[in-house]
């Protein structure tokens, strides 16, 4: 008998009588821009409101040094082109990635970022700085509404909440562990 069969047989023999699977209520909450902004700041990110989508390029130029090696499917002024086949050496030098976030979660400041919006799966983590463009209309209150919006999580996707961080040395919070050193949310109308 293979391990698979052995394990499954032992599980069947040892598991208790079936108990019901509960229905998860739809806990509502505050889905306001204010709440979302407060949470993003609390987890070490910043929120910049962009008056109109047309100003995006200009805002990014104001926020970040012009000579940053930048990858983005959203802006014309990018100087690094990235796709799923981009060599690691090129990826490793990206200083700024500007990507489209799908929706934000007000209770924790997380933003859903599916693979389709990443250019390369590693880009949101390997870039030194990350900016996510998010529509103010796309905010939900809690993770219950968040998962309810996801018909599928695709091949790969992440709820990304703030910059990379660690507190592994004496519980001292340090921003910028292995992933992006900073997260900027560009909130568009």
């Amino acid at each position: 008998m293979s391990s698979r069969e052995k394990i499954l047989a032992a599980v069947t023999a040892n598991q208790p009588a079936e108990v019901p699977l509960p229905t998860v209520p739809f806990f509502e909450g505050d889905a306001s821009v204010e709440k979302f902004t407060a949470l993003v700041q609390a987890i070490g990110g910043r929120v910049v409101e962009v008056a109109a989508l047309a100003h995006l390029e200009e805002v990014v130029r104001q926020l970040f040094p012009a000579d940053y090696r930048m990858a983005s499917p959203l802006l014309s002024s990018t100087n690094v082109s990235v796709d799923a086949q981009t060599p690691l050496a090129v990826l490793a030098d990206v200083e700024l990635a500007v990507l489209q976030g799908e929706f934000g979660v007000a209770e924790n400041g997380a933003i859903w970022l599916p693979e389709e919006n990443m250019l390369h799966r590693a880009l949101p983590m390997i870039t030194q700085h990350l900016a996510l463009v998010l529509s103010q209309q796309q905010l939900v209150a809690t993770m219950h509404q968040a998962y309810a919006r996801l018909a599928t999580v695709g091949g790969y996707g992440t709820f990304l909440a703030g910059p990379s961080k660690t507190a592994d040395i004496e519980q001292s919070l340090v921003i910028g562990a292995h992933g992006a050193r900073s997260l900027t949310v560009l909130l568009v109308p």
């Binding site: 609390a42 997380a110 993770m143 695709g154 992440t158 992933g179």
Partner: peptide
């Protein structure tokens, strides 16, 4: 996951969620 992502880090470190909650379904 809506239940577990809400309780995991609040219980662990007091954060509202981890920085990365990543879902791997298919290989690249």
């Amino acid at each position: 996951l809506s239940v577990f992502t809400r309780i995991l880090t609040r219980s662990a470190t007091g954060q509202p969620i981890t920085t990365y909650t990543s879902h791997f379904t298919r290989p690249a």
